[in-house]
Design a protein around this nucleic acid. Structure first.
Lengths: 138, 138
DNA sequence: TTCCTATTTAAGAATTATTCTTATTATAAC
DNA sequence: GTTATAATAAGAATAATTCTTAAATAGGAA
């Protein structure tokens, strides 16, 4: 039994072809795909799947902590890299890359945070140009 | 002449009632309003304005660096606080608050950033619960 | 001031992303 | 295998955003 099936069993989530296939695509694709991207990939194997199922399934996965939403610039993408990491976003081609920054992760938050209740996650987003787009713009 | 009119003159942007009014609303509202919020406010004074004009004007302002988009959880908001700051987001009520973190701003980025081209901005996003929502959830 | 032209606007249609409705199908427990 | 329940497909519905077109307006020129 793989990790996906284990999570489903643990949480009482039914294992369907559609869910397995969508999870497989997500796990083999670290490029922060959109729902559209996932739908097209999954459709190669499950010809009759509807886009609504992809939306529903990903919402379920998100709820169960299997994927994370990455929302930038009007485009909703999903990320299966659940380890602590941060994002670089190219303002030209909209590509998103992951990066790691342990020194930041260790930092204490400023105590000026105005009466905030509870912190679940802190994350860095870097906007700029990727290598290729910088070259092109020269 | 106010700062808005100065920017318009500098950049060759026409000053219209609609633009002045939308800027005025943004400048007097630091709560990260949505297009809908802005539209409703502006409509109090300019009865016939269309929502398309609000979209267009804000897109223009964004292009000219007068506002910044803050996109989270499917909701697009705009921020006129152009000083270097970061965001706290309440996962329950979706409220967004600004905070400042000079120690972070001074930090050097990790040199592991994989062949990235150019960095324009680095920003921290903190997800969690605001004071009120934490109380309610207890 | 008045006129002219390019730009901007309003209105509503069009598009796109996402969600809902309903009848059907598949899963997991028995 | 049977059955109750949950999940799915299909297409309709909704919501956010953008486009089209004709009319209005700003700002410069006469």
């Amino acid at each position: 039994m793989n990790s996906f099936e284990k999570v489903c069993n643990d949480k009482g989530l039914r294992i369907t072809h559609q869910r397995s296939e969508i999870f497989r695509i997500l796990a083999s694709n670290l490029t922060h795909p959109t729902v559209e991207n996932i739908f097209n990939k999954v459709r190669e194997d499950l010809k009759t799947i509807s886009i609504d199922t992809v939306y529903r399934t990903i919402a379920t996965f998100e709820e169960y902590g299997l994927v994370k939403r990455v929302q930038l610039d009007n485009i909703t993408r999903y990320d299966i890299n659940l380890s602590l990491h941060h994002h670089l976003i190219c303002s030209n081609c909209k590509k998103i890359e992951d990066f790691y920054w342990p020194d930041f992760d260790k930092m204490q938050l400023p105590n000026t945070i105005p009466g905030w209740g509870k912190v679940d996650m802190k994350q860095v987003i870097i906007n700029g140009l990727c290598h290729q787009c910088k070259k092109l713009k020269k």
